[in-house]
Design a protein around this nucleic acid. Structure first.
Length: 284
DNA sequence: AATTCCTCCAACCGCGGAGAC
DNA sequence: TGTCTCCGCGGTTGGAGGAAT
């Protein structure tokens, strides 16, 4: 497939953005909205490629971006989401208002993966490390960070990637008791602090279609409320076509009902064949 | 005080999906 | 049906600045 050249174009600015560029981009988007990134730089009077503009806006200039430290709650949620979704940072970010995928990705790489290692948990599989004595290898002083990073992209990472669990998106239409806002609503069900978040982000609507409910999960044996590990797979339930009452997640009765239905799913999960047919029955 | 090491994060790169033609 | 283009994503890089020596 032919691909148009982008940032390789001669004459375009690269590297850190100047305040003036930020102002031009912000002003333009405030006046004309997002989108048309390819032609945006020219119309906004910027000597940047569209990709660079989009990245700057999404990760830094957007007015709804939350600045400051990640809270312990967010921290916990990121770990839970990662156990479900793996390195799907945009999906994870979609559930944490005001945080960007880049920010979460960076935070994971610099803080959370280390934190999990220190706790004796494999950050990729979220399973307990069998031999904690192996972990200090990660703490070895690096003489050349970037060279070691390149090595990291090699065999070690490939081996780890192989065991990242992919979610199973299943569209559910039978939870009639649940009323979710249509389209752009993204709902995260957390065992400790169930909360519903409505996103206004345009780009998130696509994610919302793909994944509207993520059941809080944890490793087998962990006390994780609704936690569920169906063997090696995680189940993600799509309920994008269901309407929702804003307080449904705080309604204990509804949660109980959800939990009951969830248990039904678990029972089905024990028999993979029937799971397939069950899943099919849930598909729209 | 100078140098080296390390961490953090903004920005870049390349790829794949989706839609238009 | 195949090609082209745009968009968005995840992985990676590189520089700034703080910590350690």
């Amino acid at each position: 497939m032919g691909r148009a050249p982008c940032c390789s174009k001669v004459g375009l600015h690269r590297g850190p953005w100047t305040p003036r560029e930020d102002a031009l981009l912000t002003k333009y988007i405030q006046a004309h909205g997002e989108g048309q990134w390819r032609s945006l730089p020219k119309r906004a009077g910027l000597l940047r490629c569209g990709k660079s503009c989009r990245l700057r806006w999404m990760n830094y200039l957007r007015p709804d971006i939350k600045r400051g430290n990640i809270t312990p709650e967010e921290d916990d949620l990121i770990i839970r989401m990662h156990s479900l979704l793996g390195n799907r940072w945009s999906l994870i970010a979609g559930r944490i208002p005001g945080r960007t995928d880049n920010e979460i990705k960076n935070y994971w790489n610099t803080h959370l993966s280390k934190k999990l290692k220190n706790q004796g948990t494999d950050p990729n599989t979220h399973k307990k490390l069998t031999d904690p004595a192996q972990e200090p290898a990660a703490k070895k002083k690096k003489k050349n960070k970037h060279k070691s990073n390149k090595n990291k992209g090699g065999a070690e990472v490939k081996a780890e990637k192989a065991i990242v669990y992919l979610p199973k998106p299943i569209r559910v239409t039978t939870l009639s008791s649940i009323k979710l806002p249509r389209t752009d609503s993204i709902l995260t069900l957390d065992s400790n602090s169930a909360s519903a978040t409505t996103s206004q982000e345009k780009e998130q609507s696509q994610e919302a279609k793909e994944l509207n409910v993520v059941w809080g999960v944890g490793n087998e044996g962990e006390n994780d409320g609704f936690g569920f590990f169906g063997g090696e797979d995680h189940v993600i339930v799509n309920i994008s076509d269901i309407e929702c009452q804003s307080d449904f997640l705080t309604d204990h009765g509804t949660l109980e009902k959800l939990y009951e239905e969830y248990l039904q799913l678990l029972k089905v999960e024990e028999n993979p064949d029937s799971l397939d047919s069950f899943a099919e029955s849930l598909l729209v």
